[in-house]
Amino acid sequence: MENDPVADRLSAVYPELPPGERAIVRVLLDDYPFAALGSLRALAERAGVSPPTASRLFDRLGYAGFADFQAAVRDGARDRSRLLEFVTGAPGRGAPDASSPGPPGASSPGASSPAASSPGGDGAGAPEPSGLRRAAEDLRAGLDGTLASVTDPLLEASAALLAGADTVWALGGPLSELAAEYLIRQLASLRPGAHRVPGSAQARARTLLDLGGGDVVVAYDFRRYSPDTARFVEAARARGARLLLVTDAWESPLSAAAQVLIRLPREAAGPIAPLAHEIAVTELLLVATAARLAPAARLADLEALTQSL
C-alpha cells in the first residue's frame, strides 16, 4: 500500500486517535484494502468495538460516512505488495528499466552525459536516482529515524530489565523471530539464562510452568501481529513475567501490557520488510545491557572455551 493516500492518512492520524478508533485503524491496515470493503458492522466486530465508534473514525477523517470512505479506498488502493511495486518498476519506487538512468558514469548509446547537458557542472538536468539508489536512501533515512526513536531513557529501562531478569525469553513473528534469535545469541554471551521461546505448543507450555515475576519476555511483534506471540506473552504475563516489546508505529495489541515499549517509526519501511531496523535496535539493547553487566570475565571464559573445542 505504498503511496496509497487513504492508507497514508490512516497511518498519519493513528497516534492522535482514542483507543477504539486505533483498533479500527489497526484492522484496516493489517488487511488493507480488503478489511475496508465489507460492512461497517463486520469491521467493528473485527476490531472489538461498536459500529458508532467506527463511524466516528470516518467522520473524523472527513468522509461523508463509511460508504464514502470505501469509495476512496477503491479509487486509491493498489493490490500489490511493496516488494512487487519495487521489482515491477512502480513510479517513484520501482527498479530501473530501460529508460532509467544507470549507475554513476554509465550512459546509454547516443545519450549525453549529465555534464554535457548541464554546462558548468551546476547539477541542472542531473538524472533522478535509480530505483536501487532510491531504495538505499529510504533504508538509510528509515534507519536514522529508528535509531533516533530509541531514546536514552528507553535504553536504560530496557537494559535494566535484560540485565536484572532471572531469565530472559525472546520470541518474534515469521520474520522478526530472526531479531529475537540474534538477541538471545548475543545476550547469552553476556549473561546466563537467555533463551529463545520454543516453537511447539507443548514446549511453550513447559516453559510457562517455570516462568515467574523475576523473568522477562522480549517480544518482537509487527504487522501482521502474530497470534502465537500474543498467546504466549499473555500467558507469561499472567504468571508475573515482565514484557519488553519492540513493535511498529501502529503498535502491537500487546502494547498496553509492556513494561518497556519500543515503537519503531513509520519511516522504518521500504520495499522489503525492514529487518535491518529491528537488528539495529537489538544492537543498541545489547550495548546498553553490556554496560550494566561488565561481562569481561564471562566473555574471556567463552573465548577460551571456544578455542579449546
Rank of each mutant, 00 (worst) to 15 (best):
L178C: 09
Q70H: 09
E16D: 15
G240H: 02
G20A: 14
V197D: 00
G120L: 03
P192G: 14
A201H: 13
F69T: 07
S112C: 12
L264P: 04
D79K: 15
L37M: 13
A141I: 10
L155K: 09
V13R: 04
L190F: 01
L183Y: 05
G102M: 08
A280R: 07
A95C: 13
S39A: 08
T229Y: 01
R22T: 00
G193V: 08
G214K: 04
L10Y: 00
Q307E: 13
A236G: 09
A35S: 12
R292W: 01
S189A: 14
E21W: 04
P274A: 06
A23L: 10
P5G: 08
G110V: 06
V27C: 07
R292E: 11
S149W: 00
A288F: 02
E234F: 00
A276F: 09
P33H: 01
P265V: 06
D138F: 05
A290R: 15
P15G: 07
R134C: 03
T229G: 09
G131A: 01
G193E: 09
S99D: 15
R78P: 06
A42K: 10
F58I: 09
D122F: 11
A44R: 03
A203H: 11
A236C: 12
A106L: 05
P101L: 03
L209C: 13
A36M: 03
G120I: 04
L305V: 14
E16R: 15
E278M: 15
R78Q: 13
R22H: 04
S39P: 10
E128Q: 11
G214T: 07
V87T: 13
L147P: 09
G199C: 04
L208Q: 07
L178Q: 14
R266E: 11
E2R: 15
G193M: 05
M1V: 13
P129N: 01
L243Y: 01
L178H: 13
P15C: 04
A12Q: 14
R26V: 07
T146E: 02
G110Q: 06
L139I: 12
G142T: 07
P96S: 15
R93N: 04
V246R: 02
T306K: 14
E234P: 04
A291V: 10
E283Q: 15
T167M: 06
D122Y: 12
R9Q: 14
A256G: 14
L209T: 15
G125F: 00
L299Q: 11
D210W: 12
A148D: 06
S112K: 15
L299I: 09
A141K: 14
P271F: 11
R196W: 00
L305F: 08
A294G: 15
L245V: 09
G62S: 01
D215S: 08
A136M: 14
T151N: 10
P33D: 00
Y182D: 14
P192S: 12
R22V: 03
S100N: 09
P271T: 05
L209F: 10
R224D: 08
L43K: 02
A290Y: 01
G94L: 05
G173H: 00
